[in-house]
Design a protein around this nucleic acid. Structure first.
Lengths: 207, 207
DNA sequence: CCATGTAGAATGAGCGCTCAAACTAGAACG
DNA sequence: CGTTCTAGTTTGAGCGCTCATTCTACATGG
């Protein structure tokens, strides 16, 4: 690749990023369908027509943003898995997780994504695939934890624990909208303890 | 009120209900902003213009549906509170709660409502007021439970427990979209146990 | 014959998206 | 060095359409 074309690609990538950032703000403020191309173009400081040089259509912008969001989630996930002390990491990182989920900004976008996924099969497949990956990682972590502690669990039981832990964290994104006064410093120790207890539930051999 | 006007009111109420039912379906399928008046009118079997005899505008329809949904939540809440054996009721009703939250139909509408609340202050005030009521009820229940068990907790600690329990249940509405294969029969016993453990956490005297 | 219920065409705004033209900057050339 | 050429970038008017909402006209039962 020549230097010129590389610069061109860089500039083009920058424009794409510029659009995505502006669109992200607009989607948060007006929703996927309420945010018009006109508004996005204004927010990104370029003409409406120009946006179509970088994205095929509005749907493609939405998908790019969801993809971005999911990518962030997945890298966070692999980071956690590569920790040396798994159990410590899980409990320790709980604080981070709580804080992240309690960010109203990201919660708003997440609501938008999920409400879209609830009715758009394409989007549903997207978030479900990402979730499978996260869930697989989390169950593996729990499995080794439980095994080390001498528990005998069925696969479904371990999956269930993972689901409940996931529900706890994701539920915070509801909570921060329903009650913006929620205090993370109160929540974190209760969360830590709850996760600890959950991972020490008696063996569940249901199959 | 005369018999005639009463009949008229009844018929009018029936029409309103008819519109709300149709609109509810459309909103689930297309979202608040994606569902057009034309579609709602078709689904409700009446003309577009006629809808404006019963609702001032589209916003009013949305609000009526949210109001309906919240009312259902609040009556469920008072029901729980009037149970004779509070602790038993809380653990027992967990199964019902899990099942309810795992209904994809209601989860979809809830996502829609919450994503709207995340950007529309009017809607936000609505769901926050309803949540205050539910939270107050739940904290009162937890307070008496913990007091009977001899624990000494600060108000904020009890509020924190309520928040975490709420997050668990509400999080299931995320889960059912992210992973439609989730199995309630696995989840329920883990939930019961987790709530039990949560309510038996050591005293938290933070203030 | 009036009040109310109902329909559906009309209205103007705003939508996503296209496209021909204008602009820009660097290459090629004399 | 100045001038033309060229190819990519950017614009904004405008197309066809759908939207929420309004208006006019008709039906119908008391």
């Amino acid at each position: 690749m020549s230097a010129e074309s590389k610069n061109a690609t860089q500039r083009s990538d920058a424009r794409r990023a510029q659009i995505l950032a502006a669109a992200s703000d607009c989607f948060r403020a007006y929703g996927f369908h309420g945010a018009s191309i006109a508004r996005i173009s204004e927010a990104s400081g370029m003409s409406a027509g120009h946006i179509y040089h970088y994205f095929e259509n509005k749907e493609a912008i939405i998908e790019a943003i969801v993809e971005q969001d999911i990518e962030r989630l997945l890298t966070l996930n692999t980071e956690l898995r590569s920790a040396s002390d798994i159990k410590g990491a899980l409990i320790e990182r709980a604080a981070e997780g709580v804080e992240g989920k309690l960010n109203p900004h990201s919660a708003g976008l997440q609501m938008e994504i999920m409400s879209e996924a609830a009715r758009n099969p394409r989007m549903a497949a997207f978030v479900q695939a990402a979730d499978q990956s996260c869930l697989a990682s989390l169950t593996e972590t729990i499995r080794s934890l439980r095994h080390m502690a001498g528990h005998k669990d069925s696969d479904t039981a371990i999956l269930g624990m993972a689901e409940v832990i996931a529900a706890m964290f994701e539920g915070l994104q509801f909570r921060v909208i329903r009650n913006p006064r929620i205090d993370k410093d109160i929540i974190i120790p209760i969360f830590r303890r709850a996760i600890h207890d959950l991972l020490n539930q008696p063996s569940l051999g249901i199959e």
